[in-house]
Design a protein around this nucleic acid. Structure first.
Length: 683
DNA sequence: GAGCACTGC
């Protein structure tokens, strides 16, 4: 590559329009203020929003709905809740500020508590799963949107709250989208019932403004200026057939021309290509002429151990340039300072969904083009402290042809959980729920069908009604099929085992598989392997882990991820508490694992497969040919019937996490369902 | 005989 006489970026790339802060828009435009912050108070006063404080407060007092459009650094998330409180708005109750991510909720609460000079958990607190740092004094409550949704099941009118602020609404997570409808209905009903009114404010980046405003009763849109610095956008002159090669070339061109203190952030699609490019960059940088600065290459993706993730925040050694190769984790979840250049490959790995059934029948991760919104989000990472540049490895025409928005998650996921939750919230007509972006009727119907097969709902005329079983299922923070499995476990006297297995399946794998130590891993794992399948193997590992009281050394020796195992314990204890609240009998089947498998068969029968004469497996639900994933302990076995956790569509269609079952168990679990399946096969 | 974007209750 270094021998390749490529033209410098200025020739290779074509400048596009610079990405400035928002142009003047109707509504409120707040002036920019320079920054030289000292104290917390001074910092607050220097935020761009501060001069308009009185104006903002007056608006907030009058409005029941508003949409705030603010750039990063405008201070909207930390300041507006405080303004509300300081002005006495909504003080009769609690002001909730929702976030899509846990870390954001926790750190924002910390920041606001510091600004208010109060102890976290008093006036200012936060609630996320496994952690509730609030008290009766808490008036400003930061929480994950999923947490507010769960609270809504017990209190659909959200009566504890006088204000709900839905932050980061442009991310359109499933939880935020469901919340939109829930808070809108709560607001309407509270007015109808002459209860204390609920104010709902939506905060978003520039996207989707009209959609939000329309949805919330044509609410006014307030624009807040931020501290985004101008970013020069560059496009390639020609389409690039190999975006990895293009990224490599661009990295070294910038490297050879820009001062070494300017860091580069490259957006890529996944671990494998990141690690490969990291190796290439390190190799090349070793052989560059001495006039060229050294390069520190830092990979960044979610599955990287936390200690290695922290490396992106460390400055590179003096005189060396930091080049971060990242997945879209750096788009939203992780903010790195000092980025002067962004290189955007324009690609992302995302779950592809079937638009016909509107359902992710199969998990297919595929590399695809980003949306314009994502491309702007990526570019914005170059202008956080100073002006920057973004090199897009695609042409301006290609950019123009990108989809405007990423399709909201609610339109590309299985809706069984969502529908169950809505029914538990008492939504009368789920199929016509007031979604901001409606999922396809097919995917809603499929969800209702699945819930009906699990016995969670009944159809009466045109209505979908929650059964007593469904009502209990909604109490668990689990996929419906798992809550069902757990709820029937007392019939098989194995609730303790099922609790363990479901907790193990709810977190990232507890199995640590460093490729370099493959033989050691196999040797260590051998003692846990159960011929009854992966679930039972995981159960054996958990039991051994408990026997040594979670000893870290034991985890290392046995290639068990102790952090994820810690999460398993937390999930398990939460699920166990819910079982106790529901008066479930907590029994252990001890050595009789057949009962446990029978219970899994009764809960996971929709994911069953049958061995055919030619040695292949056929999924009973869809009749497609499937295979046992090589990571399964049953890979070399050929059991006649299995249930599995998920299908993974890669080179073939693989079943992952298998459990050996009897055919009889499947039929006794859902006789009607299998009769129908049989008829479908014959016709 | 394979391969894992990212959240969250």
């Amino acid at each position: 590559m270094p021998h390749d006489p490529d033209p410098p970026p200025a020739k290779r790339f074509k400048p596009g329009s610079p990405f400035f802060r928002l142009d003047k828009k109707p509504g409120m435009l707040l002036p920019r203020v320079g920054h030289a912050p000292v104290s917390v108070d001074a910092q607050r006063r220097q935020l761009p929003i501060y001069p308009s404080r009185t104006q903002v407060i007056n608006q907030l007092r009058q409005l029941h709905n508003a949409v705030f459009i603010g750039e990063t650094g405008s201070g909207k998330t930390t300041q507006i809740p405080q303004y509300l409180y300081e002005a006495g708005i909504g003080r009769q109750g609690v002001i909730a500020i929702t976030q899509p991510r846990r870390v954001a909720a926790i750190s924002l609460a910390g920041r606001v508590a510091e600004e208010k000079r109060v102890q976290l958990g008093k006036l200012v607190g936060y609630t996320v799963r496994f952690e509730d740092v609030t008290s009766s004094e808490t008036k400003l409550k930061f929480m994950t949107d999923g947490m507010l949704l769960r609270e809504a099941i017990g209190d659909p009118l959200l009566l504890r709250y006088t204000v709900v602020i839905l932050d980061e609404a442009h991310e359109r997570t499933v939880h935020t989208d469901v919340l939109f409808g829930v808070v809108k209905a709560a607001q309407r009903k509270r007015t109808e019932q002459n209860k204390i009114p609920l104010k709902v404010f939506v905060m978003s980046a520039t996207m989707d403004v009209d959609l939000f405003s329309q949805y919330f009763n044509k609410s006014p849109v307030l624009y807040l200026e931020g501290r985004q610095h101008p970013i020069q956008i560059y496009y390639t002159k020609q389409p690039q057939s190999d975006y990895l090669q293009a990224a490599l070339v661009s990295i070294f061109q910038i490297h050879q021309e820009a001062p070494p203190s300017h860091d580069i952030l490259v957006f890529m699609t996944g671990q494998e290509e990141i690690e490969a490019l990291a190796r290439t960059c390190r190799d090349i940088s070793k052989h560059l002429p001495e006039t060229c600065a050294p390069m520190t290459v830092v990979p960044l993706y979610a599955s990287l151990p936390p200690t290695q993730q922290l490396r992106v925040f460390q400055p590179a050694p003096k005189g060396s340039r930091k080049v971060i190769l990242s997945t879209n984790i750096a788009e939203t979840s992780i903010t790195i300072s000092g980025i002067k250049y962004v290189i955007d490959t324009g690609m992302v790995k995302a779950k592809r969904y079937n638009p016909e059934s509107g359902l992710e029948v199969l998990a297919v991760l595929a590399v695809q083009r980003v949306s314009k919104a994502q491309a702007w989000q990526r570019a914005g990472r170059a202008g956080r402290e100073d002006a920057g540049s973004c090199y897009r490895l695609y042409t301006e025409d290609e950019f123009d042809n990108l989809a405007n928005m990423t399709v909201p998650e609610i339109q590309r996921c299985n809706l069984a959980s969502v529908v169950l939750q809505l029914l538990a919230l008492g939504v009368p007509d789920v199929l016509n729920f007031d979604f901001m972006s409606k999922p396809s009727p097919e995917s809603m119907r499929t969800a209702v069908d699945q819930l009906s097969i699990l016995g969670a709902v009944e159809r009466k005329d045109d209505q979908v009604l929650l059964t007593p079983m469904g009502k209990k299922m909604a109490c668990f923070p689990l996929e419906p099929r798992f809550s069902k499995t757990l709820l029937i476990s007392p019939e098989f006297c194995c609730t303790e085992e099922v609790l363990t297995i479901i907790s193990l399946l709810s977190v990232d794998s507890v199995l640590y598989n460093p490729p370099a130590r493959r033989d050691d891993v196999l040797a260590a794992r051998k003692k846990f392997i159960s011929s009854e399948g992966d679930h039972m193997t995981l159960l054996n590992i958990y039991r051994a882990f408990r026997k040594v009281s979670g000893n870290k050394e034991w985890c290392r020796e046995n290639f068990v991820n102790s952090r994820n195992m810690g999460l398993v314990l937390e999930v398990r204890s939460q699920l166990r508490d819910i079982c106790i609240k529901l008066n479930m009998k907590l029994e252990s089947s001890l050595s009789d694992l057949a009962n446990v498998r029978r219970c899994l068969a009764h809960g996971l029968f929709m994911n069953a497969a049958e061995l055919h004469l030619d040695g292949s497996y056929v999924a009973l639900d869809t009749h497609q040919t499937v295979s046992i994933h090589p990571s399964s302990v049953l890979f070399q076995a050929k059991p006649a019937y299995v249930v599995f956790n998920e299908l993974l569509h890669t080179s073939r269609c693989y079943m992952r996490d298998l459990c050996l079952v009897d055919a009889d168990w499947l039929h006794e679990a859902a006789p009607e369902y299998f009769r129908r399946k049989l008829r479908a096969t014959k016709s």
